[in-house]
Amino acid sequence: MAANYWESTQRKHWQVSSECLSQWRNATEERLRLSKHPNANIDLGDPTHIRIFLHGLLVKLGHRLSCRQQILATAELYLARFYAKASVKETNPYAIVTACLYLACKIEEYPQHIRSITAEARALWPDCVSSDSTIIGQCEFYLIEEMGMCLIVHQPYRSLKQFSRSMSDIYQGQLIILPDEMSCAWSVLNDSYITDLPLLYPPHIIALAALFVAVLTKAPRGSVSDTAVSGSRMANLADWLAQCGADLSAISNCVQQLLSLYHSWESYRDSTCQQIISKIINTS
């Protein structure tokens, strides 16, 4: 992570209000409608489901390329930024996902040749990605353009580690984040890219929310004594959050959005999304 978050382009240009995000999205829909785009009236269904689908594509290609987690996270944020300004309906999401990873690999100094990354994407999705790698090159250009050429991103993972360390210092054993909770918080962060959180909140707030969700869901349940133990852990955590002066309403907002993501995930069907996306690719 380079430079300073507080003076970063992320904070200046890419951390917006939820009103601003809806404005962007409405403007995109309006543009599609006015230009009579052939896909303007396609029903995407639950927008969260489409986001889960895109996230799945990105993780799949990322693993195939043996990308480090940091590269994946950068690509995820690029994807979120791109689709904040453009609609799935006017793009080939497979190509955009590939371009996000292609650019993220360069930014994180793990450069891939454009032809080889195109070939890898085609190996996964032969019907959805063209063998012409200039298309990925074009998508890279649009991606950089839509992002206002802001390329360095700040992620919540490092904050998560720092918080866990500082907690064990302050509470000296009373509130140590267990390995189980830590890995749970880590995967909550991975999932946070499916939501709008990375566009709305600074990384450290998202890290705190993930920690909270992890302690909440990993709490032992069952016997009365278990409930008492987990109750006191939650109280300690709440106490610590209050002490560190973090924006509690922002954290609780994040927690709610994360929990509603998991709620929505229960009704997610991969095949349904795939059908919708295929329809989009075939008409555009």
């Binding site: 360069k106 450069p111 200039t134 360095i152």
Partner: peptide, 24 residues
Amino acid sequence: KLGEFKDGIDISAIRELKFLQEIR
């Protein structure tokens, strides 16, 4: 230069852009 997108954007150009955007 983008060279008709054949090779993607040069990594040196990307590095220059990414750092100069953040440093003042």
